[in-house]
Design a protein around this nucleic acid. Structure first.
Lengths: 256, 256
DNA sequence: GTCAGGCGTTGACACAGATCAAACAGCAAG
DNA sequence: CTTGCTGTTTGATCTGTGTCAACGCCTGAC
């Protein structure tokens, strides 16, 4: 099973690079994601400086990789559209989804420390990213204090997010984890102008399970149970949150 | 139980600040932790610039807090000596140890994103830290490229470390987690010139359990079992690793 | 259209680790 | 020395989630 999955990833990966490089200039100054992404808080003039830095966009088809563990690190990526997962693979076949990333979020910061990527980033739907050469970003942020500050915040936010996942994996039971996951997605969709109550999951039950430290069957059962008690309605990957408060109560409730 | 613990933390915390501020100048240039800490890779001249930035050291007694969730963020801290844990507390009383930090490591980067600390840092033994005002660090790293690069690596390393913990919590069983934990400690002690095989745990079984997503009884049983099969010998907090390879095999072994 | 294969659901059962409980070791205070 | 408290060990039992298995539903390929 793991073998097959690995193979698929390999194949799809090799096809990506030549197809997805474009010479299209990306202008942060004209991007409506400004408020979510790196340019947040920059002045018009500063954003124009940032424009010059972002050389290319890359299109990634569903199932294809953006970068991959072991690969040399050169750039971070801002998601212009689409949806990604990142995962870590151990030699013995174990793999753990470390995050799901959506529009406006930054990918690739794991690679800075060792100048090598330490996880795989895979598109869960056809996506487009802005390639931000890291050396250039460091250069510009030495001149633009606001950019420097904002980039540090983005990295720090990633650390805080990871602590949240550790809390989830370390102290929550299956249904609490799933509830936390759904509420987190809902909130992030809201921030992007989508419905908070209704959305489409881009990932499989197995990927959710891997992220939450559960087996896919457990995820499926939890979905069914949430539906039974009226918290949500589920049809395949389509989720409708009916009782936001119920889900929240589930999480904050002591289990003892 | 949780109540009591909270109380103790509160009390001890309040006493800290007036006692621990000192005006002693800390010189990175004369610090033998240079190769582990922020100054890594800097030239003599650059290190002298760093000297001017680090205003004070702070002494933290065992059990006292260095900073605490909700508190305003102003500085990060380099551990000069001692041992810390960081933990996150949920309103409902659940708490999760998010990490253990030792000499030469950097604390407080969680606070950058929201300009507020999001976890508590508590000394597990009498410790001393260098206070690095964050605004100053950003200022200097705009001028010293090596410092900027190194600081980014330190933050990124934290992200990678967190992914490792997520892998541990998401895919490993109890004994694998403890084995990974011991090997990680051993490796970090080695890097600091201490014995790889013999060391003293500064944290309780409960704190280990919280970090590893296990109950203290499970941690205790795993220790006992490791001793039975000859991987380690344990006497209270004193650990002696007898079969490093055995522990490694345990982790890389598929569980299925 | 039909067919195949991946994905999701559900059930029965097993087991790792949680929970409850008791006793002990180490250490500080008196 | 005794007392008390915190942390640790160990045992017995319980339970949430994993595992194994069967089946059904989409979706995409042809």
């Amino acid at each position: 099973m793991t073998q097959i999955k690995q193979q698929v990833t390999d194949d799809s990966y090799c096809n990506v690079i030549p197809l997805t490089l474009t010479t299209l200039k990306t202008a942060c100054s004209q991007c409506n994601l400004r408020e979510l992404c790196l340019p947040f808080g920059l002045s018009e003039e500063e954003i124009h400086k940032l424009d010059s830095l972002i050389g290319v966009r890359r299109r990634i088809k569903r199932g294809q990789g953006l970068y991959r563990s072991g690969e040399g690190f050169e750039a971070i990526y801002a998601i212009r559209s689409g949806f990604f997962k990142t995962d870590v693979l151990l030699e013995d076949g174990r793999d753990q989804v470390t995050g799901f990333q959506m529009t406006g979020e930054i990918l690739g910061m794991d690679g800075i420390s060792g100048e090598t990527h330490t996880c795989n980033a895979v598109a869960l739907e056809d996506s487009e990213v802005c390639v931000i050469p890291f050396a250039d970003l460091e250069g510009l942020s030495r001149n633009v204090q606001t950019l420097q500050r904002h980039f540090h915040k983005v990295m720090s936010r990633e650390i805080v997010r990871d602590h949240g996942v550790m809390m989830l994996l370390g102290t929550m039971r299956a249904e609490e984890r799933l509830a936390a996951f759904l509420l987190n997605l809902s909130q992030r969709f809201t921030a992007r102008g989508y419905s908070a109550a209704e959305f489409h999951l881009r990932m499989t039950r197995e990927e959710i399970g891997s992220y939450l430290g559960l087996k896919l069957e457990t995820v499926s059962r939890a979905f069914s149970h949430f539906q039974e008690v009226g918290y949500i309605s589920v049809q395949q990957k389509h989720i409708h949150i009916l009782d936001n408060h119920g889900l929240k109560k589930l999480i904050s409730h002591q289990h003892g």
